[in-house]
Design a protein around this nucleic acid. Structure first.
Lengths: 343, 343
DNA sequence: ATGAAAGCGCTAACAA
DNA sequence: TTGTTAGCGCTTTCAT
């Protein structure tokens, strides 16, 4: 490897001090414009590249943000990440991204690695089996901001970006009731994950609100993937009475239910009205199109990074206090899979 | 911010030199086991955290790999990234990820930013309008390995991981011909992107091989998204003769064609046989299921990172020479959208 | 097996 | 507006 060009080389070449070069390159206002110009030119000419390690070592700042997602290959998460990357790159930050694969031990390892990499801030959507957030303690102690999004801790003491999943579950369920559904099954994922618990709460509240009996047998927990539909439909058809409404906590799984139901000749929405979650691509492609909760994923990414960066830059005048939560708007999109009144 | 614990603190606490502490923490063999043990304990006790900047500054190595993708929110890319992250984290590397949004100028900015961040290596899938790869020159000059995957440069002088898109286009087209299609339309994206050009080549070769006339009017270029189907089907139905086979260069768009065709009462595959690309989720959900090219995205990510890291670690004995290309296996999956013989 | 000394390249404090 | 000095925390000779 050839010797690197440093600010000393630039300095000695044009007869100023390294300090002046440093200041010029950082666009410090109190450097003579002509000196600045000469420094830029010389830097260019010599092929100077700033040594970010030395700079970091002094400044104790990296312009790197860490992100820990459950999985990279999920439509929801990749859309969040796209929003995050947009905001981060506009503000001059890099994103270091890792996935927990929904395993607490991997999440702990990722957290350590992010801490050792000295990210300036951390964005986290929790793994399924994360019970407490003790592993973020090093961040809290060093006052490195940690912002949770979507899958947040159960405790109230955190900064986060979420939607009101209780309300979303409530509205989705109420909609099914309004369509005349008498017996509504709710399918959700790992109950340790707050978003699922909250939607379940909303489901129950909606039943209560409409004076309907809550039947625990109508709540199904399983892995919400493209293969789940068969299994779910099998269960539905063995219930007594057979339900006529279905609220599924993500679109991939809801779409697989639509397919499995159609295969058995069950008419949607007449015999079974269905609502999903997320407004993923699949919800617009399956036939009939899926009613769903429009989850503002891209926006969630933007807002999360924006706020984290605000935390970092604006140390005095923080709009968002620690342990405050931002709740984004969602909306129920009614499509063919539940729209009985249009029939 | 509180004062950081350094190796000096550990050293003075137990009366050894900082050198010894550094060696112990790096698990250097020539340190007395008892000394080592004491050093580990003291480090733990004081809450020592290694300062990676100082270490980087000396070692000139970051254990960070840069990744530039066209877009984060694509099923294909997020699956590649999942594979990359898995490999990278197993090997102790972090991934710094940014997206070019298919814009050359953003790609150039990202490349600069990665260079300034001093990543140890770079993984790139090119933007649509990237004509040449001059902007990677700083990496080449400093001999920082750059590995291209999927969307690679036209020049031969690069290290990359790809599939044989010519062959894939060939097989997909041949399959449609075997199903009795007489007039096959090929829909592809921006022709500057090598993968689309290669598939087009394969499409032409297959026609030639089967003594079919190549009609340039049967080649449609447009943005391959979920909205394209309507437009494409409109064009198809105005062709003379109306085609009976359709090869679409990604599954999202192919699925939108299926939907648009069904809406017009066209039977699939009898009147129109369709093949997509990628084996995305949607190909298994749309009705009829989409025949497609199984693109090994996750594996591509794993292989790309694995090889980049090999480059980095094994400087002498590199299995993969510079400017060498790895070609992964793909396969044609035949499903209902093209399987006429099963009717 | 351990230590002393030097230096990686930059920036902040202070001085002029 | 510019310069001097010192030091961020670590690793690496070289010496013992």
């Amino acid at each position: 490897m050839k010797k690197e060009i440093t600010i000393y080389d630039i300095a000695s070449q044009i007869g100023v001090s390294p300090t002046t070069v440093s200041r010029a390159l950082n666009n410090h206002p109190r450097v003579n414009e002509r000196t600045k110009k000469k420094i830029y030119e010389t830097a260019e000419e010599l092929g100077y590249q700033s040594n970010i390690f030395a700079s970091n070592l002094r400044r104790k700042y990296t312009y790197n943000l860490g992100v820990i997602v459950p999985r990279l290959d999920s439509p929801f998460q990749s859309s969040v990440l796209a929003g995050m990357e947009k905001m981060a790159s506009e503000a001059g930050y890099n994103l270091i991204i890792s996935q927990s694969l929904d395993s607490l031990s991997k999440e702990i390892a990722n957290t350590k690695s992010m801490f050792n990499s000295r990210v300036d801030g951390l964005l986290v959507s929790l793994a399924a089996d994360t019970g407490n957030i003790d592993h973020f303690q090093p961040f809290f102690q060093k006052e490195i901001p940690v912002l949770f999004y979507d899958r947040v801790p159960e405790q109230n003491q955190f900064t986060g970006v979420v939607i009101d999943n209780v309300q979303a579950g409530f509205e989705a369920t109420s909609h099914l009731i309004d369509q005349g559904c008498e017996n509504i099954v709710h399918v959700l994922g790992n109950p340790k994950i707050n978003v699922y618990m909250d939607r379940l709460k909303g489901y129950k509240y909606a039943l209560m609100d409409h004076d309907k009996h809550y039947n625990p047998d109508y709540v199904i927990h399983l892995k919400l993937d493209e293969h789940a539909g068969e299994n779910i439909v099998e269960q539905l058809l063995n219930m007594d009475p057979v339900p006529d409404g279905l609220l599924v906590s993500n679109d991939t799984c809801a779409a697989s239910c639509v397919i499995a139901l159609k295969k058995r000749g069950i008419e949607i929405p007449r015999q079974m009205a269905i609502v999903g979650f997320n407004n993923d691509l699949i919800s617009r492609m399956v036939d009939p199109n899926l009613s769903t909760i429009n989850y503002p994923s891209f926006h969630m990414g933007e807002v999360a990074v924006k706020n984290l960066i605000n935390h970092l830059s604006d140390e005095e005048n923080q709009l968002l206090q620690k342990t405050e939560t931002i709740t984004l708007r969602f909306s129920l999109i009614v499509r063919g899979s539940s729209n009985r009144l249009a029939l």
